[in-house]
Simulated assay, not measured.
Amino acid sequence: MKVSLFITCLADMMYPEVGESVVRLLHKYGCEVDFPELQTCCGQPAFNSGYQDEARVVARQWISAFEHSDYVVSPSGSCTGMIHHYYPDLFRDEPEWKAKAEAIIAKTYEFSQFLVKVLGVTDVGASFAGKVTYHPSCHAMRLLGIRSEPGQLMEHVRGMELVDLPHCEDCCGFGGTFAVKMADMSEAMVCEKAKNVLATGAEVLVGTDMGCLMNIDGRLNKEGKPVRVMHLAQLLEQGGTAR
């Protein structure tokens, strides 16, 4: 099975180790993984800010980079959600590009979704010694309908204590440009999220979107709280002991 990695801007620039974990896991299950060098931002920041013409330019480049891929897999529900839900609208007046967008949507998956739904994998043989809680990102849940897949993967991690996060479906306050435009509201939301994370007593917070994890991690660090954050792919691929 041939898979193209869509790394996303945030992972590429700040968390490349997440992409490395995704690739190693895909290799483990026999996937041949490539990295289209023409890939760019999916266009979400421009789209969310109302710059649709600029977003279309970026989206055309993204489609061109991946249109020949068999599957596209990303460690981000947010960017994958942008492609699935907003590309058809973005190209509603351009039939050729709308058709290309719809074709690529059918083969584009968020990481946990691909493992469970396409590869049929729920137990990767991982082990992890520590107490962990999980934050589900808004876009993965609400745009892609990802609810059970991360839990199915985590429940098979040996030696790990998984504890429920209170009010887990509440937004962390990041939301990309929302955190910039509505800074006070965003801060209030992430403070609430951090409080709920700390209430679990978990040593590690796991998620599927580095934007959310970066935001929550920033708040926890500001409060001096020693909670480690990890992308789900890192948890499944690295294992080891919480630190």
Rank of each mutant, 00 (worst) to 15 (best):
G201M: 08
D70P: 04
K2N: 13
M160N: 08
N196Y: 11
T208S: 13
D123Y: 02
Y51I: 06
F6L: 15
S69T: 07
R92S: 14
N221G: 14
C41Q: 04
L153F: 07
M185L: 15
S74A: 12
I104Y: 03
V57T: 12
L205P: 01
H27I: 12
C212N: 07
E17K: 14
W62I: 02
Y86E: 13
P16I: 04
G176L: 01
V118P: 01
A126T: 02
E17Q: 12
M189Q: 08
V229W: 00
Q152T: 07
T208C: 14
L235F: 05
T133A: 02
E161I: 13
S74F: 05
M14T: 11
V190W: 00
Y87W: 01
I146E: 02
G239L: 06
E203V: 11
V157F: 05
R92A: 15
P95D: 08
T177F: 08
G30F: 12
H84I: 07
S74P: 00
M141E: 12
H167N: 14
R158P: 08
E223D: 15
I83F: 02
H85E: 15
T108K: 01
H27S: 13
K225F: 12
M160K: 00
K222N: 14
S137I: 10
E187C: 07
F128W: 03
V124D: 05
E155K: 15
R24W: 05
H139K: 09
V73A: 06
C212H: 01
Q44A: 11
G240P: 02
A59K: 01
C9T: 04
T40A: 03
A99L: 07
V18H: 05
E169A: 12
E187V: 14
N48S: 11
C42A: 08
L198S: 11
K28D: 02
A140F: 02
L115T: 06
H84Y: 06
F47A: 12
D70H: 10
Y51R: 10
C41A: 02
